[in-house]
Amino acid sequence: MSVSVLLVEDSALVVGALHLLLSERGFAVQAASGVREAIEACRHKVPDVMLLDLSLGDGSGLDVLAALAAPTRPRVTVAITGHDERRVREDCLRAGCRDVLVKPIDSMTLAGRISDWLAEEEHRVRA
């Protein structure tokens, strides 16, 4: 079964590009355009991976993580931001993100990194 990815991003342009990239790489991709929509999507069906933009129309991406309790949290959440700043990175890691990607995301390595994050998570859970 293919790995499911929830894209949380309020720009339809970025969603379009990442959706195309990831679905062509074999991922089952869903999108949510804001905090509320993302929380609902996770409660309905928890994705394996959530790619979470920090700046959303109805709040911060980190509000999504704060609202989700353990069973509805994706196995891996990775933040996406336009701000390449150490403070932003630290806030995201503290909130439970596995990593932080700075826009523009390197499309060549994204699919591989998703697999790596999931493998690391698997390893962590077993240990």
């Binding site: 720009s11 342009l13 970025v14 590009a17 195309l20 990239l21 826009k103 523009p104 995301i105 060549m108």
Partner: peptide
């Protein structure tokens, strides 16, 4: 401006 540029770059890289 970074947002649409991100989309252009991703499409071009695809």
């Amino acid at each position: 401006l970074r947002t649409p540029l991100t989309a252009v770059i991703t499409h071009a890289e695809i």
